[in-house]
Simulated scan of single mutants.
Amino acid sequence: MKKQANSISAGLAFMQAAAAAMPKSLGDREYGAAMGNVMSLAVRNRFAFDRNDAEALDKLRFEGAVVFRPLDYYLGACRFGGTYARMWELHHGQKPWMADRAVFPAYIGGYDDRQPFTVEDNRIAVRAGALLPGSDDPDLATFEGLQVWFCTSMTDDTITLCRYAVTDEVRKYHGRNAPLSQQGKPARIRKLSRAEWQQWNQQANELRSAELAA
């Protein structure tokens, strides 16, 4: 169906309707939490957002006892896919950072927090990670023979990655998925240019392709 002129995206219409439908009797805490749940539902289920929706969405921002910022859901959008991520990137003037194998914390999917999620050839965001090749260090996070690095900040030009130690306590709780959990203070920090990042992920891709071909 062709979109009519002056119509708005389904995602934005949904969020505006939700805000208008909230009872006036709701307290700040209930309202902020409810809007956060609605935004999470829209992102998790890949509701359609237009590339220029950011300004209108941000007008729904609410800062009370519970803060609701509609543009704070990029991590979930990277995890689930959909058009929100592209809208966020345009608004922030930032191209996506694509990982050969991305790692997402389990709480983003609403599952058991002992079961992080990995996906190939995917965007990452702050608090997401990547599996990358390198020398092994038994004291630092390693999963399936690859180093585990988590993104702690990013701009359009650079990305900052941290690697963490895996403690006995984390192993006891998370089992084999312990290296995929971001815990404690970083043991290693690397700041990469986009070219360095792409080269490292290309090495990961070549290694994975070779393993599949073997």
Rank of each mutant, 00 (worst) to 15 (best):
E211L: 15
T83A: 07
A33M: 14
T152Y: 10
K3P: 06
Y74A: 02
R44D: 15
V126E: 11
L60Y: 01
F104Q: 02
F80E: 09
N201P: 02
P179S: 05
L180P: 00
C78K: 00
C78L: 02
V126N: 05
Y84K: 03
R208M: 13
S193N: 10
V170M: 11
E30V: 09
H92Y: 15
F104A: 08
D58P: 02
L132P: 00
D100Q: 14
D113E: 14
Q94C: 11
N52H: 13
A214K: 15
D112R: 10
M1A: 13
H91K: 13
R176W: 03
A130W: 02
G81Q: 11
A77C: 06
G184K: 05
V148I: 09
V66K: 08
D139I: 08
S153L: 07
Q182E: 15
M39D: 01
W197R: 03
D156H: 09
D100T: 15
S209Q: 15
F143Q: 04
A65S: 14
V126K: 04
T152L: 07
I159W: 01
A125H: 04
T152P: 05
R86D: 15
P23F: 00
A48H: 07
D58R: 13
T155R: 09
W200P: 01
G36L: 03
Q16M: 02
A99V: 06
A204I: 09
D53T: 03
R44K: 12
G36Y: 02
A19R: 01
D139H: 05
N52P: 01
P186W: 04
N205P: 04
R176M: 07
F104H: 08
L131Y: 04
Y111W: 11
M87G: 04
F68G: 00
A130N: 07
A195C: 07
A195I: 15
Q16I: 00
R79T: 10
H174F: 10
A18G: 01
G110N: 07
R163E: 05
N205R: 15
A204K: 03
Q198A: 15
V119N: 12
G145I: 06
L180Y: 00
G110D: 08
S25E: 15
S209W: 10
Y74R: 05
R176V: 11
V38C: 00
L41M: 10
N37D: 14
T155G: 06
G27L: 04
G109A: 12
P105D: 05
K185F: 08
R44Y: 06
A85E: 02
N37W: 08
Y111M: 10
Y111R: 14
D100K: 09
F80W: 11
A210S: 14
P138L: 07
V126W: 04
G11Q: 03
S135T: 12
T118N: 02
A54S: 12
A141M: 04
R194F: 10
T118P: 02
L207W: 06
G81F: 10
T83K: 05
L132A: 09
R208D: 12
F150N: 02
V166H: 02
R171M: 06
A77R: 00
E169A: 15
T158K: 09
L57C: 07
D137Q: 11
L207Y: 01
V170K: 06
